[in-house]
Design a protein around this nucleic acid. Structure first.
Length: 812
RNA sequence: GCCGGGGUGGCGAAAUGGCAGACGCAGAGGACUUAAAAUCCUCUGGGGGUAAUUCCCCCGUGCGGGUUCGAGUCCCGCCCCCGGCACCA
């Protein structure tokens, strides 16, 4: 054993050895419980991995190694989320090509992960942009299509001038493109593919209750799905037989107070109902709303505006004709694109009615006797007034009564509305998975590519940049576009859009179970064995989109009988963001990316890993601070010294002192508990504390049990040093194949405890007592204390509160 | 504006309602050394009392209240920081 710790020397040697012995190769083994730990797979960027990435990968690696030591068969693999905007945009920016950059960047990530000592089974590496992967992404799209969950629709979509492409609703941030936050988006009409995720809204919502996820993430998903109960009703358009305005309301009990209606400016009914005098004004307003920057239209501070259509609807409850307006605050994308306005009970309707001098009936009050406030809407639940057959009913009952009345009279029904919209999955981009659809020029229409013709290969293209026409660059490749109809054999064209990158990441967790399977997306037996994922870890920025899409696809697969579970990730945790030392996001453009390479070169991979674990709770955000790495390196050197002293003393096999033994068992108990709860920082602190004790022992007192269990517990966190020291202690087998040490509960228990004595809540003394001492004995000892007597100052205690083995509180 | 998370020494942070600051970083002093580095030892929230760094007291977890024998932790009201969402009928 070398006198000094030299990370460069041991790290490359052990890497080669682990490679040679295929230490991390994983196979199904029915004899052992499985454990599948998965990090959200990264997009391989040219900036390389940062120390921020490792704040996710190192803890997961520790869990993987720990679980292996506790007898689990662990699946821990890595892949690349390589298709999509980020990879394409980065390649464009550098004037290179994603087919060249992606493999290069991925190889660099792999190299960085390997030198960081992360134990992945690299034989399972996957890449979402390789044909043997995206063949099955296409297959899943066809599955969705077959099950009626993929459909084509014309949508008015956001358009970014800089990206020269269409954006999904989710990609519009504050009215600007999410990638060019200074570029307000415009609009373009296109026919595109949608995934009917709304069909799964209720299950996506309901099943949240059964999974172990951080509550804030669940809440964000609930809010995103945005379920609201209410009624869908219809009022006829006055003087237009057969025409009606359908609308959704959460407050059907206020129908008697509906004094006007508002349609979205894009509402298709408009053209048929507006009066000639109003047409010019309406069209100008609608054009304005459409052209308006979304910042303006969505601004909450902006005063409400609207235009009267000239048309009226018949409120079938009051039998009054009420004016129909349009306003940009009513959105076509939610509900039916039309609302009933009950200005007495809704704040926005109140504001609108006040501005335009519309009637404000009052139909809800806190009680039948009370008058509603005159200066604002009464939005709370209460009692119906001025409401015909609803009068006197509390809001809940009135809602139910109106819903029943609506069904009986053919006006509408109780229903549920969702805020979540269907997933627009088409991208007018080159770097994505081609959508396997064909448009027959004959009579067959839209025809799916037969499964045996998959994959539809992405054609090589030199000039792959968005064309700026709104069409995908693939439209410029005639050999790709022109094909024959799979049904009739006649001339046909291919779909030229590619799939949203989120499609690739909606099933990749299945692929790791059988990554080389070429007859199916996955091998059923392997998936039955490995899935669902036992621990899924990633950033909170994926709270809604990725995690909702992956959950939905899983449910579709379950429904299709392909898998036997409904939730892909029963346990989810979020790692905290590591900000740059300056408190900003690490990015290449800001020049503040700290790479693991630099840290490994300076301190060694194990020191870096320990600092990643130690610097903060893994799920909390923190600023990167290099000075701590020197501290964890110092810790490793002290462990090194301890083991060397142990080895030089001839690896004493003798019995340790009672105190040493107790400390060793307590350390095992605490470290185990903290790792199980992913409290890596305190797990390591416990080991440091234990080392502080062991390092003070004389060489002959350093016993085998304490020293060996220490190294075994350190090994998952610092795999190189763990391995080196384990071998230095005379073992031949890898430490990473050892069993996690067990503790003796009898040795963890203490015989005596320190009991805190408080007087009026202030600590005044501490006494040592045998564990389980009865209260009267503790009281007696406490009252005998000189400090207690001094603070009592002759007063008689009124009351004693005793917490067993912890504290005695004296109240005076 | 709404929703969520957070605010503890010079810094990163500990603490099932029960000894606030474990474990580290940085700093100070000392040992070793010709010297330095490394290493090891000691000290390190603020204020005060005392012969006493070792004994004792007071204050202290963003601010103001409250519950409790006891609050960093629970409740109410504010301030600030971070993230998400944007008139959701």
């Amino acid at each position: 054993m070398d006198e000094r710790y030299d990370p460069k020397k041991i790290e490359s040697a052990w890497q080669a050895e682990w490679e040679r012995t295929q230490l991390y190769l994983t196979c199904e083994d029915p004899g052992r419980p499985k454990y599948y730990v998965l990090e959200m797979f990264p997009y391989p960027s040219g900036a390389g991995l940062s120390v921020g990435h490792l704040h996710n990968y190192v803890p997961c690696d520790v869990i993987g190694r720990y679980k292996r030591m506790t007898g689990h068969n662990v699946l821990h693999a890595m892949g690349w989320d390589a298709f999509g905007l980020p990879a394409e945009n980065e390649a464009i920016l550098k004037g290179s090509h994603p087919t060249e950059t992606v493999p290069r960047y991925a190889a660099n990530f792999k190299r960085q992960l390997t030198i960081s000592g992360c134990a992945y089974d690299w034989t399972r590496e996957i890449n979402s942009s390789s044909p043997d992967y995206y063949k099955w992404t296409q297959w899943f799209f066809l599955l969705l299509h077959k099950r009626g969950l993929a459909y084509r629709a014309t949508g008015t979509q956001w358009w970014c001038d800089k990206c020269r492409t269409i954006l999904a609703n989710e990609q519009v941030v504050n009215g600007c493109c999410w990638r060019h936050t200074d570029t307000p988006v415009g609009k373009k009409d296109l026919e595109q593919w949608y995934i009917k995720i709304t069909d799964y809204a209720d299950r996506l919502l309901g099943d949240l209750d059964a999974i172990d996820w951080p509550e804030p993430i669940k809440l964000m998903q609930r809010n995103w799905i945005g379920r609201s109960e209410g009624a869908e009703l219809a009022f006829p358009v006055a003087g237009r037989p057969g025409k009606e305005v359908r609308f959704f309301t959460t407050r059907p009990d206020t129908v008697f107070g509906v004094s006007f209606m508002v349609l979205a400016p894009e509402h298709p009914l408009l053209n048929e109902i507006i009066t000639p005098e109003q047409r010019a004004k309406i069209e100008a307003y609608a054009a304005e709303a459409r052209r308006q920057s979304e910042i303006e239209r969505m601004s909450t501070v902006k005063e409400k505006t609207g235009v009267f259509t000239g048309a009226f609807a018949r409120n079938v409850f009051t039998n009054k004709d009420i004016p129909i307006w349009i306003a940009d605050y009513v959105l076509m994308g939610y509900g039916t694109g039309a609302i009933m306005a009950a200005p007495g009970e809704d704040e926005r309707d109140f504001e609108f009615a006040t501005k335009y001098g519309l009637e404000i009936p009052r139909v809800t009050a806190s009680s039948e006797a009370a008058a509603p406030p005159s200066d604002r809407a009464f939005t709370e639940h209460g009692v119906a007034i001025n409401s015909g057959f609803l009068n006197g009913m509390p809001t809940q009952k009135a809602i139910a009564t109106v819903c029943k009345y609506a069904i009986d009279n053919g006006i509408g029904r109780a229903t549920v509305s969702y805020r979540m919209r269907d997933w627009l999955i088409s991208r007018q981009r080159y770097w994505g998975c081609p959508i396997p659809m064909v448009y027959c020029k004959g009579a067959c229409g839209i025809v799916p590519v037969p499964e045996n013709q998959l994959p539809v290969l992405l054609p090589p293209m030199k000039e792959y940049q968005p064309s700026g026409t709104g069409r995908s660059p693939l439209a410029n490749v005639p050999e790709f576009v022109n094909t024959t109809c799979p049904k009739c054999g006649g001339p046909a064209t291919r779909e030229t859009d590619t799939l949203d990158g989120f499609a690739c990441s909606s099933w990749y967790f299945l692929r790791f179970a059988s990554p080389r399977e070429d007859r199916a997306a996955f091998d059923r037996k392997a998936v039955d064995y490995w899935l669902p994922v036992d621990l899924y870890v990633g950033g909170a920025e994926h709270a809604v989109m990725h995690l909702l899409y992956a959950r939905m696809w899983t449910k579709v697969m379950f429904d299709a009988g392909l898998i036997n579970f409904k939730e892909p990730f029963p346990v989810l945790r979020n790692q905290g963001v590591v900000w740059a030392p300056d408190g900003q996001r690490m990015s290449k453009s800001k020049g503040n990316v700290v790479t693991p390479d630099a840290m490994i070169d300076k301190y060694g991979a194990d020191s870096l890993r320990l600092w990643e674990l130690f610097m903060s709770p893994y799920d909390e955000a923190t600023n990167w601070n290099e000075s701590g790495v020197a501290g964890t390196q110092r810790f490793i050197m002290r462990v090194w010294t301890m083991v060397r002293r142990y080895a030089e003393a001839g690896a004493p096999a003798g019995t340790p002192s009672n105190e040493t033994l107790k400390r060793a068992h307590k350390t095992i108990a605490t470290v185990t508990d903290h790792i199980e709860r992913l409290r890596f920082n305190t797990a390591l602190a416990t080991l440091m504390d234990h080392l502080n004790y062991l390092a003070k022992l004389k060489p002959g007192e350093l016993d085998r049990f304490s020293t060996e269990t220490f190294v075994v517990m350190l090994a998952p966190m610092a795999p190189y040093v763990g391995e080196e020291l384990w071998h230095a202690m005379g073992h031949d087998k890898s430490v990473h194949l050892e069993s996690w040490p067990k503790f003796d509960p009898a040795l963890v228990r203490d015989e005596t405890v320190t009991i805190v004595i408080q007087i009026s809540g202030k600590v005044r003394d501490r006494i040592e007592m045998p564990v389980g001492s009865p209260e009267d004995e503790v009281r007696e000892r406490a009252m005998a204390s000189e400090a207690v007597q001094r603070h009592l100052a002759g007063k008689t205690p009124k009351k004693f509160i005793y917490v067993q083995d912890k504290m005695l509180s004296i109240v005076i």
